[in-house]
Simulated assay, not measured.
Amino acid sequence: MSLMELRKVWGSAPLLAVSVGVFIRDEHGRVLLQRRGDDGRWSEPGGALDPGEDFLTGARRELLEETGLTCDDLALLPLPEGLQDGPDLYGRYPNGHEIYVVGRRALGTLPAAALEHAAPDDSGETLELAWFALDALPDLSSNANRRSLSVLRARVGLPPLPLAPTPPPPPLGNHLMDLRKLVGPRPLFSPGANVLVTDDHSRLLLLRHGGTRKWTLPGGGLEPGETFEQTAARELLEETGLTAARLEPLEMYAGPAYRFTYPNGDTVDNVSVLYRAHGVTGDLTPQDGEVLETGWFGVDDLPDDDELSGELIRANVRHWREGQSTQP
């Protein structure tokens, strides 16, 4: 379901907005910004993904809708600088709708003269487009814009932009389950994180999930105001009793390939960051009810694909297996 559809049943309370920010720079190092129709302030082009959409497809669509431009070299920024998440990315629209932005950042280049051919759509989202130097930015619309532009500023040695104060995030609960009570089994974005944990014998930890009865990785869903890394650490502890000294982001997965339908019919569009755990401590203690059993698997004895819990977990396991095959 789209954000607009969710608002009809959820009201104005905070929602996770799975979004992509699009940064276009010209030959002078300036960045393209739009003056927004909702608050009159400036932001990069971008917005919420459509159901089932991947981030790069969403970035291209939003750029075209809000500027009328296309960019051949548009690409997602690498992790971790390409990630959008955390309590600072709270936003409240003039109509009272509250969000926490989570997602990615994309970057591309166009000549300054491309702006002469800009043609935003007639939605009213874009009032004006202009190039700005990174050390002479206008009044920005939100912390999401400030955080993202600080990433670009850091690349040229400029300090981060100050952030506006934000309210404390809601207490941890089960955001996805709360939405399910209102929307039924229809597809919902499910931002979250999974964790690769290995032992001293280079074996991968897998968990047999109580709901699907298939093998999965430690991990789960992100709550409003959490970072992906905080989600990974929390879920690792809850499901296994283990703690990591450091979590290294490896890859982010989103798009139609990672849609998953649970046995009860509930459907999610997974938007997931894969982490590798370093410095793992604690006693392996499976979470009662959610984890039926645990297992350590080497490259040659991994479960078959049909025993793994969906394409997201299969992709995560492939990432680990391919990494093992390239090690000396």
Rank of each mutant, 00 (worst) to 15 (best):
G46N: 07
P51Y: 06
G47Y: 04
T70G: 13
R35A: 06
E65S: 02
G47M: 09
T57R: 14
R61L: 03
D72A: 15
L69V: 12
D38Q: 14
G46Y: 06
G40L: 01
L74E: 00
T67P: 07
T67M: 10
E66P: 04
L74V: 00
D72R: 13
Q34V: 06
L56N: 08
E65R: 01
L63E: 00
R61P: 01
L56E: 08
G46W: 05
D54H: 13
E44F: 15
G52L: 08
R61D: 00
E44K: 06
R35M: 10
D72F: 10
D39W: 07
W42K: 09
G52C: 08
F55E: 05
T67R: 08
E66G: 02
G68Q: 11
P45H: 01
D50C: 10
R35L: 07
E53H: 11
G40P: 02
T67K: 09
D72P: 06
L56I: 14
G58D: 10
P51K: 05
L64F: 14
G52W: 06
Q34L: 15
G68F: 11
R61S: 01
Q34R: 15
R61M: 00
R36D: 05
D73M: 03
A48P: 05
G46A: 13
L69T: 08
E65Q: 04
L69H: 11
L69G: 07
E62P: 00
D54F: 11
G47V: 09
S43K: 15
E65P: 04
D72S: 15
R60P: 01
E44I: 13
R61F: 01
S43E: 15
E62L: 12
E66L: 06
G68M: 12
L64T: 05
D38K: 12
R35T: 07
G52N: 06
W42G: 08
P51I: 03
R61W: 02
E53L: 13
G58M: 12
D54T: 11
P45S: 02
C71F: 06
G46V: 10
E65G: 00
F55N: 04
S43F: 14
D50V: 11
G68E: 11
T70V: 15
G37Q: 01
T70Q: 14
C71T: 07
A59I: 03
R60L: 01
S43Y: 11
D50W: 14
L49S: 06
W42F: 14
T67C: 12
